Computed example of a mutant assay.
Amino acid sequence: MKKLLVAVVTGGALLVSGTPALAQTALGPYGYGKIRLGMSAKQARATGKVVLKLAAQEGSCSGWDLRAHPTGKNSVGLYISKRRGVAVIFAPKGVKTPAGIGIGSTMKQVKRAYPKVSTPRDGIPSASVPGNPKARYFFFPNRKGKLEELSIALITQDCVS
């Protein structure tokens, strides 16, 4: 099946549309696709986009995978807090923030996209999420400064430290 890409110039603006497969869902500002920060486990499960991977223990969070992006044996794609709902979502490979940051981006690119990125002493670099004052992006660079992991999380999340 061929994919159709249509470009139309109207009023000086270029509009591009294509098949839904061409549209890529961004990480943020409120979540990833149909999975929204703050939604309950029941609401997240009802989307059909997540699968339970690690049941919550007493007072903790449950670990889930995005159905379309399963993770390895010792990891999860998101955490859902009993108190806060969807609390942390990790970016699957190929998924980027609206500013174009994703796994493989450099910290130099992160700082250009998010000039107010901060790194607490012995901490993880993070930046506020434009358009959502209740969330932050967390950037996990390797020794060479390239992101190995990226997440969006509620500021009030209680799943990871």
Rank of each mutant, 00 (worst) to 15 (best):
V8F: 07
T10K: 14
G11T: 05
G12Q: 03
A13T: 11
A13S: 14
A13G: 02
L14C: 10
L15Q: 13
L15G: 07
V16P: 02
G18L: 07
G18D: 08
G18H: 04
P20Y: 04
A21T: 14
L22K: 03
A23F: 14
Q24V: 15
A26H: 09
L27P: 02
L27C: 11
G28H: 02
P29C: 08
G31Y: 03
Y32G: 03
R36W: 01
R36V: 10
R36T: 11
L37N: 00
G38F: 00
M39A: 10
A41D: 10
K42F: 11
K42I: 13
A44Y: 07
A46H: 03
T47E: 05
K49E: 15
L52P: 01
L52E: 13
L52F: 00
L54M: 04
L54I: 07
A55R: 12
A56F: 01
A56L: 03
A56S: 08
Q57D: 10
Q57R: 08
E58D: 12
G59I: 03
G59A: 02
C61P: 00
C61M: 03
S62R: 01
S62E: 07
G63L: 04
D65R: 01
L66E: 11
R67W: 05
R67K: 15
R67H: 11
A68Q: 14
T71S: 11
K73E: 15
K73Y: 12
N74K: 10
N74T: 10
N74M: 11
V76A: 05
V76S: 00
Y79S: 04
I80Y: 00
I80W: 00
I80G: 01
S81W: 00
K82D: 13
R84S: 09
R84Y: 09
R84D: 08
R84F: 09
V88E: 07
A91G: 09
A91L: 07
K93G: 07
K93N: 12
G94P: 05
G94T: 10
V95K: 09
G100S: 11
G100E: 12
G100M: 10
G100Q: 11
G100F: 11
I101G: 03
G102Y: 06
I103T: 07
I103H: 01
S105N: 05
S105I: 06
S105D: 07
T106A: 08
M107H: 08
Q109I: 03
Q109W: 04
Q109L: 07
Q109D: 15
V110Q: 03
V110M: 05
K111F: 06
K111N: 14
R112E: 14
A113H: 08
A113N: 07
Y114S: 03
K116P: 00
S118V: 15
S118M: 14
S118H: 14
S118Q: 15
P120R: 13
G123I: 10
G123F: 12
G123E: 13
